[in-house]
Design a protein around this nucleic acid. Structure first.
Length: 877
RNA sequence: GGGCGUUUAGCUCAGCUGGUUCAGAGCACCUGCCUUACAAGCAGGGGGUCGGCGGUUCAAAUCCGUCAACGCCCACCA
């Protein structure tokens, strides 16, 4: 059968994914094997696959596939996240394009549109993951807003409320005027902005001389909300303002001057305008000094009735306008350029407005405690470890979590307000009614209760993910949660360490009393060649599907993994995918070679093949041990690289070249069998990284049963190795390279047979192999190198190829002189060490012994080099 | 303003508790080859005073100090 010389992944990948699905090889049920569980970081339900997902999910798949092949009951649970703000924003956008405003719709109507959107776009990303080869248990696909997960969320809310950990309160929150919702601190991104610092004149009330206070502010549009001016009690330059009242420019309202040490005397003029409704610090000052609070903004960032004649204008327009007006009124002394940090909404990129509002909060201190310890004492390990510090720091300074969002798309807060004040928290309206009736002494019907309009933060559902996907909140003792939980590994981005990882750990301890996972593998950011983060808006990200079409899923998977140690950014280069594809092709062609061999049962195994088989068996064990070790440290790219070199160099370039029979000659059965066995092991070792091609070839290697798959074939295990044999073989490689170098240098064709002379110690057990690989007629030991031979050293042994007239004496001499100079220099450095008494006294004996050996070796080598030079010189004359 | 991390070949990275000719790997690059598994390949090769300075030590890429550059996280200075 003729097999194409180039591997074509498209068909193969499709075929085997279907096969895996057909035989339910991804599906897991609890049994008596050891479980291995990974829950997917649920992507946005309406999202599409990007390079970050590719990296993240490739890693998860490698871990899961390997665990499965190690005999564990592997379960990778897929799912999606409802992504409250992001999805709602998209739905609002779509409605707007159809000329519909969200405010024109009822909550129910809006949600119908949102579900429609979800049905249209939902799950696309999961289909794309299949193309990547992801071995998720698709029967378990969950959604953070499906029935079970929703029920879990409400249950947890009720429970935490019951425990007194959830409270409601008016606080300064981060308000997103575009999304019209509060955000948690984590959803605010601070960016440096070029702004202006305005110096405003606040006239002192009733001062006949027109004295004024100068206030520096970046937000002149908030002066309508000023309720005090603050100075430092010890500030001499502003002492004259103590006890006075000043008049807000344009507004013409008098406010008191208060004193507080919070004010920095050095900043600006030392006068601070206090706007408790629109600045966090001012709010605290206001509380401390009992100041009134005037909120001047509407929810959308326009000015409300307190905004005098600016009412209805946008906050930034107002700033421009007020600057003009102040200028005209002569109330601005100067304006300086000023760079400072401003908070932006993570989702909408709108400038955050600190705003006082009624929100729901979760107390974190108690929840954080076991979660902090778990990472500190390595019950949960972070890879790389450096994130431990970051985590600890955040956990130790944790603040209460604002969990309410003023959105419709999400889990509606199960709090029900009573007609005469107060509220109850309950799973259902009916239950709420019952609770409410118990609480008040007036008659109530279900219609009297008004459910809170807000929904919960998206993370309030995803923090339960490792538990809720096994329904462990609703049925805490079910078989599945007991079996699969704690999960094993989590693979995610460091960006969401606080949003998600930390909170999952907390909920894990709160609801299971156990860690939710054992290892967290943090991936880096996928960047383009210029070091920019790949993003849709920049348009610098390749389309993952296109990439897979071009290089094959296996090729892309390999490309992603080759250069990305945990926690490091991945500077993505298609060249890496090309390397992955080339490797696929290499594997493919190795298989073609083996497949093409004709086996002859009657011929004996050649000595060369016997040696190769023995050596490769050892090398295989050694590599398996190395790969096992790397996996235990989560050094995936190094494990892949080790296998890459093992296949390419050791297997293809050495093993196959040695055992390969001459053209059109059959191979002996023994070697053939061993080779198939090795190839089988290689495909299994590589399978977690490149699932498709390995399945294709593994299936073709031997007759397989229907439904049988490499996916469930055991991962090869390491065995004892003969280190002497391995070391000797390395010498062999060097000798072969040496002879090849001479061929290249002297332009000697491969067909031409050569002789090899050996001067010095040489183990001849591999001579037959050397002869085959170098096409030598014989290998003989000589006491002295022939003058007309080209030579090289391996260790202290000199190898040489007699060349007669072909030798270029001058060039050869030059080489020998260079080698001599180097060796003499080396000897000098060794002698220097050895003549240093302190070295001989203090260094460990084996180190000193080693230096002595180096000395002896160098000396013998120098002697041999000198002989060679002398002989050649003679020849020249 | 605090804290953490990184700095080794053109690129991406290994080099554990200091000591085998220790300066490595992959890719890229250069040279020569269409040698019947593979030109998506084969053979050979060049390339780094291990960020700077100082210290400890018989011995430093490795330990200590310091400076610099870059990156990340946290933070309420108007």
């Amino acid at each position: 059968m003729e097999i194409a010389s180039k591997y074509n992944p498209a068909e193969v990948e499709k075929k085997w994914y279907q096969y895996w699905m057909e035989y339910q090889l991804f599906h897991s049920e609890p049994d008596d094997r050891e479980p291995f569980t990974i829950v997917i970081p649920p992507p946005n339900v309406t999202g599409v696959l990007h390079m970050g997902h590719m990296l993240n999910n490739t890693i998860q798949d490698v871990l899961v596939r390997r665990a499965r092949m190690q005999g564990k009951n592997a379960c990778w649970v897929p799912g999606t996240d409802h992504a409250s703000i992001a999805t709602e924003a998209k739905v609002v956008e779509r409605l707007a394009s159809r000329g519909i405003k969200k405010s024109d719709l009822t909550r129910e109507e809006f949600l119908e549109h949102a579900w429609e959107w979800t049905r249209e776009h939902g799950g696309i990303i999961l289909e794309q993951l299949k193309k990547l080869g992801a071995s998720c248990d698709w029967e378990r696909t969950a959604f953070t807003m499906d029935d079970l997960r929703s029920e879990s969320v409400l249950k947890v809310f009720c429970d935490l409320h019951e425990k007194g950990l959830i409270y409601r309160g008016v606080r300064m929150v981060n308000w997103d005027p575009q999304a019209l919702t509060a955000l948690s601190d984590e959803e605010v991104i601070h960016k440096e902005v070029n702004a202006k610092l305005y110096y405003l004149k606040y006239m002192v009330e009733g001062d006949p001389n027109g004295a004024y206070a100068l206030v520096a502010t970046t937000r002149p549009e908030t002066i309508m909300g000023d309720t005090a001016m603050c100075i430092h009690p010890d500030d001499p330059k502003n002492a004259h303002l103590k006890g006075k009242r000043v008049i807000i420019p344009l507004v013409n309202r008098a406010i008191p001057v208060i004193e507080d040490e919070y004010v920095d005397i050095e900043f600006g003029t030392g006068c601070l305008k206090v706007t408790p409704a629109h600045d966090v610090n001012d709010y605290l000052l206001g509380e401390k000094h009992n100041l009134p609070s005037i909120d001047i903004f509407n929810d959308d960032g326009t000015l409300n009735e307190h905004g005098i004649h600016y009412k209805g204008m946008d906050r930034f327009e107002t700033r421009k306008q007020i600057e003009k007006d102040l200028e005209e009124a002569g109330l601005i002394e100067r304006i300086e350029p000023y760079v400072h940090k401003v908070g932006f909404s993570e989702r909408t990129d709108a400038v955050i407005e600190p705003k006082l509002s009624m929100q729901w909060f979760l107390k974190m201190e108690q929840l954080a405690k076991p979660a902090t310890e778990a990472v500190e004492n390595d019950t949960i390990r972070f890879h790389p470890e450096k994130y431990k510090n970051m985590y600890r720091h955040w956990m130790e300074n944790i603040k209460d979590w604002c969990i309410s969002r003023q959105l419709w798309w999400g889990h509606r807060i199960p709090a029900y307000f009573l007609p005469e004040g107060g509220y109850v928290v309950a799973m259902t309206p009916e239950e709420a009614l019952e609770k409410a009736r118990a609480k008040v002494d007036y008659p109530l019907t279900i219609d009297d209760l008004k459910q809170d309009e807000d929904v919960l933060d998206t993370w309030f559902s995803s923090w339960l993910w490792p538990i809720s996907v096994f329904d462990g909140i609703n049925r805490p003792n079910n078989e599945e949660i007991n079996y699969y939980y704690p999960t094993n590994d989590l693979v995610t981005a460091p960006e969401i360490i606080f949003f998600w990882v930390a909170r999952m750990i907390m909920s894990g301890y709160e609801y299971r009393g156990e860690p939710c996972f054992r290892n967290v593998y943090f991936t880096g950011i996928v960047r383009d060649k210029l070091g920019r983060k790949m993003s849709k808006s920049l348009g610098n990200s390749p389309d993952p599907i296109e990439l897979m079409n071009q290089y094959g899923a296996d090729g892309v998977r390999m490309g992603m993994l080759l250069t990305s140690p945990a926690g490091n950014d991945l500077p993505f280069d298609e060249l890496m995918c090309e390397q992955g594809r080339n490797f696929n092709n290499k594997i493919w062609n190795a298989f073609r070679l083996i497949e093409g061999w004709e086996v002859d049962e009657t011929i004996p195994q050649p000595e060369t093949a016997a040696i190769a088989v023995e050596w490769f068996q050892n090398k295989l064990f050694e590599t398996i041990a190395e790969v096992d070790d790397l996996f235990s440290k989560y050094r995936l790219s190094e494990a892949l690289m080790a296998l890459y070199k093992f296949f390419w160099d050791d297997f293809s370039a050495w093993y196959l070249e040695i055992v390969k029979p001459d053209y059109q000659q059959p191979i002996d059965a023994q070697t053939y069998k061993a080779t198939l066995h090795f190839f089988d092991a290689l495909t299994r070792l590589l399978h977690p990284f490149m699932p498709f091609i390995t399945e294709e070839l593994w299936q073709a290697l031997y007759p397989r049963e229907k439904g049988e798959s490499i996916m469930t074939a055991p991962q090869p295990e390491a065995g004892a190795t003969d280190s002497g044999l391995l070391a000797d073989f390395e010498v062999l490689k060097e000798v072969v390279s040496g002879v090849r170098a001479i061929r290249t240098e002297k332009n000697i064709p491969n067909r031409e047979e050569l002789e090899l002379h050996v001067t010095g110690g040489h183990n001849d057990r591999f001579n037959s192999v050397i002869a085959k690989m170098c096409r030598l007629s014989n290998i003989t030991t000589v006491s002295e190198k022939q003058s007309s031979a080209a030579g090289f050293f391996v260790g202290t042994t000199e190898y040489s190829v007699p060349l007669e007239e072909k030798i270029d004496v001058d060039a050869e001499l030059e080489k020998l002189h260079a080698e001599l100079a180097y060796t003499e220099g080396f000897l000098q450095s060794v002698l220097k060490k050895l003549s240093n008494e302190r070295f001989v006294q203090n260094a460990k004996p084996e180190i000193v012994e080693n230096e002595r050996k180096k000395q002896a070796d160098a000396e013998s080598k120098i002697a041999r080099l000198k002989e060679g030079i002398a002989a050649l010189t003679l020849l020249e004359e």
